[in-house]
């Protein structure tokens, strides 16, 4: 958990794993309840018949973003204490392509594949098996990838800093883009033949 509750010693560090487990159970339950344990859900994004994945992830991003901005403004939390993952430019692009190809091929993301396993889906089990094979090969061949893996570290880069605009303008534009995307996705869904599953 990277929220400022633990760095500020409001919650002792020993609770880290307990909180992670509770959030994980909630996350898995919600994924399954929303139908994400079916590989057709994710495939829908690629074929244009179901954009729920896009909606979910953009809603999550918007909720978190507006939440952090407003909480920081109210003084309920200190956004400057949040942990930001370091940004590696080229590894992020290449990794994103590999992961996207995996999504499109398998119809799962790592999280949804475990949801699928929990309800006994065989394709999800095969997907998760492939996941571990991939981890194994990456670990074994790490020395080959090492220079790429560690290249282009830009630290805790923030996109609005890199674009040279203010945080508020970027947040506003992102909300506008998301709303546009939501309606655009609905429009495409209407054009594409509905797939029943």
């Amino acid at each position: 958990m990277t929220g400022p509750l633990i760095p500020m010693n409001i919650i002792p560090e020993a609770w880290n794993n307990v909180i992670a487990l509770l959030i994980g159970i909630g996350f898995g339950f919600t994924l399954e309840a929303s139908g994400f344990s079916s590989s057709r859900k994710i495939m829908g994004t690629f074929f244009g018949y179901d954009f729920v994945v896009l909606r979910v992830f953009f809603t999550a991003a918007l909720t978190a973003m507006t939440g952090i901005i407003y909480f920081d403004f109210m003084g309920w939390m200190d956004a400057s204490m949040l942990y930001i993952n370091p940004f590696y430019v080229s590894p992020a692009i290449i990794g994103g392509l590999v992961m996207g190809a995996g999504f499109a091929l398998g119809g799962f993301c790592p999280g949804t594949s475990f949801c699928g396993i929990a309800i006994g889906k065989i394709d999800a089990m095969v997907f998760a098996g492939g996941l571990f094979v991939g981890i194994f090969f990456f670990s074994e061949a790490y020395s080959l990838f090492e220079s790429l893996y560690n290249s282009g570290n830009m630290g805790d880069a923030l996109i609005f800093d890199m674009l040279g605009m203010s945080k508020a303008v970027f947040a506003f534009l992102l909300i506008m883009a998301a709303i546009g995307m939501f309606y655009g996705a609905t429009f495409i869904e209407k054009l594409v033949k509905k797939v029943e599953y």
């Binding site: 920081d72 508020a168 303008v169 998301a178």
Partner: peptide
């Protein structure tokens, strides 16, 4: 429901746009 959520997102978005920059 989508309409209500869109309006809420718009209100919050404009709120952020006109939020004074406060240094804690």
């Amino acid at each position: 429901n989508y309409l209500i959520l869109t309006i809420l997102a718009l209100i919050l978005g404009f709120g952020i746009l006109f939020m004074p920059d406060i240094k804690h």
